[in-house]
Amino acid sequence: MLGLTHLQRLEAESIHIMREVVAEAQRPVMLYSIGKDSAVMLHLARKAFYPAPPPFPLLHVDTTWKFRAMYAMREQAAQDAGMDLLVHHNPEAMERGINPFDHGPLHTDMWKTQGLKQALDKYDFDAAFGGARRDEEKSRAKERIFSFRTASHGWDPKNQRPELWNLYNARKHRGESIRVFPLSNWTELDIWQYIMAEGINIVPLYLAAPRPTVERDGMLLMVDDDRFPLQPGEEPVMRSVRFRTLGCYPLTGAVESEAATLPEVVQEMLLTTTSERQGRAIDKDEGGAGMEKKKQEGYF
C-alpha cells in the first residue's frame, strides 16, 4: 500500500482545518489577496466542500493599489468557485487619498490593517481564513493554525492555545475572532508544486513577460498605471520581469527573468540565493520584529 506524498498530506490537513472551521464557527470568511497562496487556499476550499461551493464568502481588503491583472483575476476566481466576493475599502484611507508613494508605512496600516479590522467588524465575521505560511517569516513559525484575536483584533503571542494532534479548539467569546491559517505547514516550493500538479490559475504576473519598469531604491517597480509619479529622469523601460510575491504594485519589486512557464519559475526560484520576501518592502520596516509588531496591531 502506498503512503501519502507530502503534498497529499498537506492537502488533507488543510481540508480538515477548513471543515473544522465551517463546522464550529458561526460566520467564517476567506481572506482573498489574489496571490498564489490565496489561489491555492481557494482551490483547497473548493475541494473541501465539493460538490457544494465553499459555504463562506471571499473578502478582499483592497488598497486600490493592486496590479490591474490582480483585479481581473479576482472577479473570475470568485465566479469560478461560485462564491460571493466582498471588497472592502477603508473609507478614511479613501477620503484622505492614502497612497504608497506619499504615506509610507501609513499606507499599509490604514488600507490593510485598519481596513481588515473594519471589514471583519462590519460583517461580524468570527473566523477568517488567511493564506500565511509558517516558512515565510520567523514570527510566523510560532503562530498557531487557529490564532485568536481579542475583540479589538489584538494578538498575544504569549497567550496562544496549545494545538495537539489535529484537534482545534474553536471556542471563543462573543466579539472575539479567529484567524485560521490552513496553509501553515506549506512551504513556497509546496505551493508551486501544487499549483502545477492541480493546474491552478494564477495571476500572469508570476510569469516573466516584457513590462514597463523603473528602477528605484534598488527595486524594480512596474509602472502599472498612470498614477505612478515618475521622478525627474525616470523613464519606464520595458524589461522581461516577473514577481515572486504580489501586493500593492508600488511596493512590490520585480525580478528580471526569462522564466515564462511554471517549471521555469520554480527552477529560477530554486536556483536563486535570496529568500522569498526580499522583493517586498513591507517586512523591512522597523527592523527584524516588523511582522511581529504588525500582527500584534492586527495585521494578518
Binding site: 506524498t5 507530502h6 503534498l7 498537506l10 508544486q193 517549471p263 520554480v266 527552477q267 536556483l271
Partner: peptide, 25 residues
C-alpha cells in the same frame, strides 16, 4: 555558505519536480 542548489534543478527541472512531487513527509 551560499545556498547551492541541486545540479538537477539546472539540468532538468522537469525530472527534479517529478522526483520531488512524490516525496514522503
Amino acid at each position: 555558505r551560499a545556498y547551492r542548489p541541486d545540479a538537477l534543478i539546472a539540468e532538468d527541472i522537469g525530472a527534479y519536480l517529478q522526483a520531488h512531487q512524490n516525496k514522503g513527509l
